[in-house]
Protein backbone atom coordinates (compact mmCIF):
# COMPACT_ATOMS: atom_id res chain seq x y z
CA UNK A 1 0.00 0.00 0.00
CA UNK A 2 1.43 3.35 -0.99
CA UNK A 3 1.87 6.25 1.38
CA UNK A 4 -0.82 8.17 -0.51
CA UNK A 5 -3.36 5.41 0.04
CA UNK A 6 -2.37 5.12 3.67
CA UNK A 7 -2.93 8.83 4.22
CA UNK A 8 -6.31 8.73 2.45
CA UNK A 9 -7.42 5.83 4.65
CA UNK A 10 -6.47 7.70 7.81
CA UNK A 11 -8.26 10.83 6.58
CA UNK A 12 -11.43 8.83 5.91
CA UNK A 13 -11.39 7.32 9.40
CA UNK A 14 -10.90 10.73 10.98
CA UNK A 15 -13.59 12.46 8.87
CA UNK A 16 -16.37 9.87 8.89
CA UNK A 17 -17.65 10.52 12.44
CA UNK A 18 -17.74 14.28 11.79
CA UNK A 19 -19.71 13.89 8.56
CA UNK A 20 -22.23 11.47 10.09
CA UNK A 21 -22.94 13.52 13.20
CA UNK A 22 -23.07 16.77 11.22
CA UNK A 23 -25.53 15.40 8.68
CA UNK A 24 -27.82 14.34 11.53
CA UNK A 25 -27.60 17.72 13.21
CA UNK A 26 -28.26 19.36 9.84
CA UNK A 27 -31.62 17.60 9.57
CA UNK A 28 -32.48 18.53 13.17
CA UNK A 29 -31.62 22.17 12.56
CA UNK A 30 -33.43 22.25 9.21
CA UNK A 31 -36.57 21.41 11.18
CA UNK A 32 -35.93 24.48 13.32
CA UNK A 33 -34.52 22.75 16.41
CA UNK A 34 -31.07 23.66 17.70
CA UNK A 35 -29.66 20.67 19.60
CA UNK A 36 -26.30 21.51 21.15
CA UNK A 37 -26.15 18.06 22.72
CA UNK A 38 -24.30 16.35 19.85
CA UNK A 39 -21.24 15.69 21.98
CA UNK A 40 -23.41 14.02 24.62
CA UNK A 41 -25.37 11.93 22.12
CA UNK A 42 -22.16 10.91 20.37
CA UNK A 43 -20.51 9.69 23.55
CA UNK A 44 -23.69 7.83 24.53
CA UNK A 45 -23.62 6.19 21.12
CA UNK A 46 -19.98 5.26 21.62
CA UNK A 47 -20.58 3.57 24.96
CA UNK A 48 -23.78 1.88 23.79
CA UNK A 49 -22.01 0.54 20.70
CA UNK A 50 -19.07 -0.73 22.72
CA UNK A 51 -21.35 -2.37 25.27
CA UNK A 52 -23.53 -3.89 22.56
CA UNK A 53 -20.54 -5.32 20.75
CA UNK A 54 -19.06 -6.71 23.96
CA UNK A 55 -22.27 -8.35 25.11
CA UNK A 56 -23.15 -9.89 21.76
CA UNK A 57 -19.65 -10.42 20.40
CA UNK A 58 -20.74 -8.79 17.13
CA UNK A 59 -19.74 -5.27 16.06
CA UNK A 60 -22.90 -5.10 13.92
CA UNK A 61 -25.06 -5.45 17.01
CA UNK A 62 -22.77 -2.72 18.36
CA UNK A 63 -23.72 -0.41 15.48
CA UNK A 64 -27.43 -0.99 16.04
CA UNK A 65 -27.01 -0.41 19.75
CA UNK A 66 -25.03 2.79 19.15
CA UNK A 67 -27.72 4.18 16.86
CA UNK A 68 -30.41 3.23 19.36
CA UNK A 69 -28.40 4.73 22.22
CA UNK A 70 -28.07 8.09 20.49
CA UNK A 71 -31.70 8.15 19.34
CA UNK A 72 -33.16 7.21 22.73
CA UNK A 73 -30.94 9.74 24.48
CA UNK A 74 -32.09 12.46 22.06
CA UNK A 75 -35.71 11.68 22.98
CA UNK A 76 -34.99 13.24 26.36
CA UNK A 77 -34.03 16.45 24.59
CA UNK A 78 -37.08 16.25 22.33
CA UNK A 79 -39.43 15.76 25.26
CA UNK A 80 -37.96 18.66 27.22
CA UNK A 81 -37.80 21.17 24.38
CA UNK A 82 -40.74 20.18 22.20
CA UNK A 83 -43.32 18.95 24.69
CA UNK A 84 -42.32 20.97 27.74
CA UNK A 85 -40.96 23.88 25.60
CA UNK A 86 -37.75 24.20 27.60
CA UNK A 87 -34.97 26.46 26.26
CA UNK A 88 -33.17 24.61 23.49
CA UNK A 89 -29.71 26.03 24.07
CA UNK A 90 -29.71 25.30 27.79
CA UNK A 91 -31.23 21.84 27.32
CA UNK A 92 -28.70 20.97 24.63
CA UNK A 93 -25.79 21.96 26.85
CA UNK A 94 -27.30 19.95 29.70
CA UNK A 95 -27.65 16.97 27.37
CA UNK A 96 -23.93 17.11 26.60
CA UNK A 97 -22.97 17.28 30.28
CA UNK A 98 -25.40 14.50 31.15
CA UNK A 99 -24.13 12.34 28.29
CA UNK A 100 -20.50 12.73 29.29
CA UNK A 101 -21.29 11.82 32.89
CA UNK A 102 -23.76 9.02 32.22
CA UNK A 103 -21.54 7.37 29.60
CA UNK A 104 -18.65 7.36 32.06
CA UNK A 105 -20.83 5.62 34.60
CA UNK A 106 -22.27 3.10 32.14
CA UNK A 107 -18.85 2.39 30.68
CA UNK A 108 -16.95 2.01 33.93
CA UNK A 109 -16.71 -1.78 33.62
CA UNK A 110 -15.59 -1.56 29.97
CA UNK A 111 -12.49 0.53 30.52
CA UNK A 112 -9.26 -1.09 29.31
CA UNK A 113 -11.06 -4.07 27.78
CA UNK A 114 -9.77 -4.66 24.24
CA UNK A 115 -12.48 -3.63 21.82
CA UNK A 116 -14.00 -5.47 18.89
CA UNK A 117 -12.98 -3.93 15.59
CA UNK A 118 -15.57 -3.60 12.84
CA UNK A 119 -14.29 -5.51 9.83
CA UNK A 120 -14.06 -4.24 6.27
CA UNK A 121 -16.45 -5.30 3.53
CA UNK A 122 -14.75 -5.29 0.11
CA UNK A 123 -17.15 -4.58 -2.72
CA UNK A 124 -16.62 -7.09 -5.54
CA UNK A 125 -14.97 -5.72 -8.73
CA UNK A 126 -14.88 -2.10 -7.53
CA UNK A 127 -12.37 -2.96 -4.81
CA UNK A 128 -9.89 -4.11 -7.46
CA UNK A 129 -9.56 -0.67 -9.08
CA UNK A 130 -6.05 0.61 -8.35
CA UNK A 131 -5.75 3.30 -5.62
CA UNK A 132 -9.48 4.11 -5.47
CA UNK A 133 -10.44 0.48 -4.85
CA UNK A 134 -8.55 -0.16 -1.61
CA UNK A 135 -9.35 3.32 -0.33
CA UNK A 136 -13.06 3.65 -1.12
CA UNK A 137 -14.36 0.13 -1.68
CA UNK A 138 -12.59 -1.92 0.96
CA UNK A 139 -14.13 -0.03 3.83
CA UNK A 140 -16.30 -0.78 6.83
CA UNK A 141 -20.07 -0.57 6.89
CA UNK A 142 -20.15 2.74 8.74
CA UNK A 143 -18.19 4.49 5.99
CA UNK A 144 -20.62 3.23 3.33
CA UNK A 145 -23.50 4.37 5.55
CA UNK A 146 -21.95 7.82 5.86
CA UNK A 147 -21.89 8.26 2.08
CA UNK A 148 -25.43 6.91 1.79
CA UNK A 149 -26.55 9.34 4.48
CA UNK A 150 -25.17 12.39 2.68
CA UNK A 151 -26.78 11.38 -0.63
CA UNK A 152 -30.00 10.32 1.06
CA UNK A 153 -30.38 13.45 3.18
CA UNK A 154 -29.65 15.68 0.20
CA UNK A 155 -32.33 13.91 -1.79
CA UNK A 156 -34.78 13.90 1.10
CA UNK A 157 -34.46 17.59 1.88
CA UNK A 158 -34.56 18.97 -1.63
CA UNK A 159 -36.34 16.34 -3.73
CA UNK A 160 -39.01 14.82 -1.51
CA UNK A 161 -42.35 16.14 -0.28
CA UNK A 162 -41.57 15.16 3.31
CA UNK A 163 -38.29 17.07 3.11
CA UNK A 164 -40.09 20.13 1.81
CA UNK A 165 -42.45 19.95 4.76
CA UNK A 166 -39.54 19.60 7.16
CA UNK A 167 -37.86 22.68 5.71
CA UNK A 168 -41.15 24.57 5.81
CA UNK A 169 -41.41 23.85 9.53
CA UNK A 170 -37.86 25.07 10.07
CA UNK A 171 -38.53 28.29 8.21
CA UNK A 172 -41.86 29.17 9.75
CA UNK A 173 -43.41 26.77 12.18
CA UNK A 174 -46.46 29.00 12.54
CA UNK A 175 -47.30 28.91 8.84
CA UNK A 176 -46.52 25.22 8.60
CA UNK A 177 -48.87 24.53 11.49
CA UNK A 178 -51.57 26.63 9.86
CA UNK A 179 -51.19 24.51 6.72
CA UNK A 180 -51.86 21.42 8.79
CA UNK A 181 -48.32 20.08 8.89
CA UNK A 182 -47.58 18.21 12.11
CA UNK A 183 -44.87 20.46 13.55
CA UNK A 184 -44.16 18.71 16.83
CA UNK A 185 -44.29 15.21 15.42
CA UNK A 186 -41.90 16.07 12.57
CA UNK A 187 -39.52 17.77 14.96
CA UNK A 188 -39.55 14.74 17.25
CA UNK A 189 -38.51 12.61 14.29
CA UNK A 190 -35.86 15.12 13.18
CA UNK A 191 -34.32 15.27 16.65
CA UNK A 192 -34.29 11.48 16.84
CA UNK A 193 -32.67 11.27 13.42
CA UNK A 194 -29.98 13.66 14.67
CA UNK A 195 -29.56 11.52 17.78
CA UNK A 196 -29.33 8.33 15.73
CA UNK A 197 -26.65 9.86 13.51
CA UNK A 198 -24.67 11.13 16.50
CA UNK A 199 -24.99 7.64 17.97
CA UNK A 200 -23.69 6.09 14.75
CA UNK A 201 -20.78 8.53 14.78
CA UNK A 202 -20.08 7.44 18.35
CA UNK A 203 -20.21 3.81 17.25
CA UNK A 204 -17.57 4.62 14.63
CA UNK A 205 -15.34 5.99 17.41
CA UNK A 206 -15.56 2.94 19.65
CA UNK A 207 -15.66 0.28 16.90
CA UNK A 208 -13.49 1.64 14.07
CA UNK A 209 -11.46 4.75 14.93
CA UNK A 210 -10.10 3.52 18.26
CA UNK A 211 -11.83 0.23 19.14
CA UNK A 212 -11.90 0.73 22.89
CA UNK A 213 -13.92 2.55 25.50
CA UNK A 214 -12.47 5.43 27.48
CA UNK A 215 -14.41 8.19 29.13
CA UNK A 216 -14.70 11.42 27.09
CA UNK A 217 -13.36 9.62 24.05
CA UNK A 218 -15.32 11.87 21.69
CA UNK A 219 -12.93 14.63 22.87
CA UNK A 220 -14.86 17.58 21.45
CA UNK A 221 -15.83 16.13 18.05
CA UNK A 222 -19.50 16.90 18.74
CA UNK A 223 -18.71 20.59 19.01
CA UNK A 224 -16.80 20.54 15.74
CA UNK A 225 -19.83 19.09 13.95
CA UNK A 226 -22.04 21.88 15.28
CA UNK A 227 -19.66 24.42 13.79
CA UNK A 228 -19.53 22.47 10.52
CA UNK A 229 -23.31 22.67 10.10
CA UNK A 230 -23.40 26.44 10.57
CA UNK A 231 -20.38 27.22 8.42
CA UNK A 232 -21.68 24.89 5.70
CA UNK A 233 -24.89 26.96 5.75
CA UNK A 234 -27.06 23.87 6.25
CA UNK A 235 -26.18 22.24 2.89
CA UNK A 236 -25.40 18.46 3.02
CA UNK A 237 -22.61 18.45 0.43
CA UNK A 238 -20.88 21.38 2.07
CA UNK A 239 -21.06 19.56 5.40
CA UNK A 240 -19.48 16.58 3.69
CA UNK A 241 -16.73 18.74 2.18
CA UNK A 242 -16.14 20.54 5.48
CA UNK A 243 -15.87 17.27 7.41
CA UNK A 244 -13.33 15.86 5.00
CA UNK A 245 -11.38 19.10 4.83
CA UNK A 246 -11.13 19.09 8.62
CA UNK A 247 -10.05 15.45 8.69
CA UNK A 248 -7.53 15.96 5.89
CA UNK A 249 -5.86 18.97 7.45
CA UNK A 250 -5.74 17.19 10.83
CA UNK A 251 -3.89 14.24 9.34
CA UNK A 252 -1.68 16.24 6.99
CA UNK A 253 -0.45 18.46 9.80
CA UNK A 254 0.73 15.32 11.61
CA UNK A 255 2.62 14.26 8.50
CA UNK A 256 4.03 17.76 8.12
CA UNK A 257 5.40 17.46 11.65
CA UNK A 258 6.90 14.06 10.94
CA UNK A 259 8.62 15.42 7.83
CA UNK A 260 10.22 18.09 10.00
CA UNK A 261 9.20 21.15 8.00
CA UNK A 262 9.91 23.31 11.03
CA UNK A 263 6.42 24.82 11.28
CA UNK A 264 5.40 25.38 14.93
CA UNK A 265 3.19 22.51 16.06
CA UNK A 266 0.76 24.84 17.82
CA UNK A 267 0.10 26.56 14.52
CA UNK A 268 -0.40 23.20 12.82
CA UNK A 269 -2.84 22.11 15.54
CA UNK A 270 -4.92 25.22 14.90
CA UNK A 271 -4.88 24.77 11.15
CA UNK A 272 -7.81 22.30 10.75
CA UNK A 273 -10.17 24.68 12.54
CA UNK A 274 -8.98 27.78 10.73
CA UNK A 275 -8.85 26.19 7.28
CA UNK A 276 -12.31 24.62 7.58
CA UNK A 277 -13.95 27.84 8.74
CA UNK A 278 -12.25 29.97 6.09
CA UNK A 279 -13.08 27.62 3.22
CA UNK A 280 -16.69 27.08 4.26
CA UNK A 281 -17.25 30.79 4.78
CA UNK A 282 -15.86 31.51 1.33
CA UNK A 283 -17.99 28.92 -0.46
CA UNK A 284 -21.06 30.11 1.45
CA UNK A 285 -20.31 33.80 1.07
CA UNK A 286 -23.37 34.71 -0.97
CA UNK A 287 -25.51 36.52 1.59
CA UNK A 288 -28.79 35.94 -0.18
CA UNK A 289 -28.40 32.18 -0.46
CA UNK A 290 -27.05 31.96 3.07
CA UNK A 291 -30.13 33.76 4.34
CA UNK A 292 -32.29 31.47 2.25
CA UNK A 293 -30.65 28.36 3.69
CA UNK A 294 -30.75 29.44 7.32
CA UNK A 295 -33.83 27.92 9.00
CA UNK A 296 -35.67 31.03 10.12
CA UNK A 297 -37.32 29.36 13.12
CA UNK A 298 -34.06 27.84 14.35
CA UNK A 299 -34.01 27.60 18.14
CA UNK A 300 -37.43 29.20 18.58
CA UNK A 301 -40.00 27.52 20.77
CA UNK A 302 -43.25 26.45 19.18
CA UNK A 303 -46.52 26.37 21.07
CA UNK A 304 -49.47 25.59 18.81
CA UNK A 305 -52.42 27.95 19.16
CA UNK A 306 -55.53 26.10 20.00
Amino acid sequence: MSMFEAILLTVITASTPLVIAAIGELVTERSGVLNLGVEGMMIMGAVAAFAGAQMSGSPYIGIVSGIAGGAIFSLLFAFLTLTLVANQVATGLALTLLGLGASGMIGESYVSIPGIRLGNIPIPLLSDIPVIGPVLFRQDLIFYLSIALVIGVNWFLFRSRAGLKLRAIGDSHGSAHALGIKVIRTRYLAVMFGGACAGLAGAQLSLVYTPQWVENMSAGRGWITLALVVFASWRPWRVFAGGYLFGAVTILQLHAQALGLGIPSQFLSMLPYAATIVVLVIISHNRRTTLMNTPASLGKAFVPER
Partner: peptide, 16 residues
Protein backbone atom coordinates in the same frame (compact mmCIF):
# COMPACT_ATOMS: atom_id res chain seq x y z
CA UNK B 1 -6.18 13.01 26.09
CA UNK B 2 -7.76 12.45 22.67
CA UNK B 3 -7.75 8.77 21.65
CA UNK B 4 -8.56 9.61 18.04
CA UNK B 5 -5.84 12.18 17.62
CA UNK B 6 -3.25 10.02 19.39
CA UNK B 7 -4.17 7.14 17.07
CA UNK B 8 -3.93 9.42 14.02
CA UNK B 9 -0.46 10.51 15.09
CA UNK B 10 0.61 6.91 15.54
CA UNK B 11 -0.80 5.96 12.12
CA UNK B 12 0.98 8.89 10.46
CA UNK B 13 4.28 7.78 11.95
CA UNK B 14 3.77 4.15 10.93
CA UNK B 15 2.89 5.28 7.41
CA UNK B 16 6.19 7.14 7.34
Amino acid sequence: FDPGKEADAAKAMVDQ
